[in-house]
């Protein structure tokens, strides 16, 4: 469904992606792992069109993302940002229903609110949260609202950018379980980037290891534990010694 072919991207002299190639089949949950600053977020933003690759092609359902109708293309996506990226000035329900209150998916206000409250319930939040402002919520609650917003328009493809960063282990577990449940329940194709191995085991059907601007390895979670690939072994066991330099 999503194909990245030889993606290159540099910011000034910093060559972040050096020919990253990856295929995510429909309905699969792919988790991209890799150290900080290895280009995981850049790869994800390239697919969404937030960053334009210097070279290479990205196809979604056989269509080049650079030539696709932007609105129709983005309407198929949901995204949970690392810091939730909720709009400070809007109450929670309007954040969740943002896409349903404007543009091609616009619904009547009452219906949009109802859907927002239903999605909030789906991520374990009560209806009384709906009228609060994002700043009044804890980090874990903000992540849940971000997740509710990502799934509000029932997207076919959902991206998760470091979904458990900044959360305590229990809340991280709750978010991981929610992501897994929602992806399975909706039958969505998911792409998650993380360096949290607990998230990887909870969320992934397949894992891809990004290092030095290219995908070094791909396989299932079971294969990840068995592989002799030195990059994967060093990363999943958090060793300081190995082919990945500890100081980047």
């Amino acid at each position: 469904m999503i194909k990245l072919d030889k993606i290159h991207k540099a910011f000034g002299d910093n060559q972040v992606l050096r020919g990253a190639t990856l295929h995510i089949p429909k309905g699969e949950s792919m988790v991209i792992i890799g150290g900080s600053g290895t280009g995981k977020s850049v790869a994800l933003k390239c697919v969404l069109g937030l960053v334009t690759p210097d070279a290479g092609t990205i196809m979604v359902d056989g269509q080049d993302v650079t030539t696709a109708d932007r609105d129709a293309f983005l309407a198929r996506f949901g995204m949970l940002f690392q810091g939730a990226a909720l709009f400070d000035s809007l109450p929670v329900w309007q954040n969740v229903a943002f896409r349903l209150l404007r543009g091609s998916l616009k619904r009547p206000k009452a219906e949009a609110r109802e859907i927002a409250i239903e999605k909030l319930r789906r991520v374990g939040l009560k209806a009384d949260v709906a009228d609060r402002l994002p700043a009044e919520l804890s980090g874990g609650m903000q992540k849940r609202v971000g997740l509710a917003r990502a799934i509000a328009a029932d997207p076919e493809i959902i991206f998760f950018d470091e979904p458990t960063t900044g959360l305590d282990p229990i809340m991280a577990g709750v978010i991981n379980d929610l992501i897994r449940e929602i992806v399975v329940e909706m039958g969505a194709t998911a792409m998650t980037i993380t360096h949290d191995m607990t998230s990887v085991r909870a969320i992934a059907d397949r894992v891809a290891m990004l290092h030095d601007g290219v995908i070094q390895w791909t396989g299932t979670v079971a294969e990840m534990d068995q592989t002799a690939d030195p990059y994967v072994q060093q990363f999943i066991h958090g060793k300081a010694d190995g082919p990945i330099e500890a100081v980047r």
Partner: peptide, 9 residues
Amino acid sequence: QIDALVTLS
């Protein structure tokens, strides 16, 4: 939040 706006069409 600006990136989020873009992803929300």
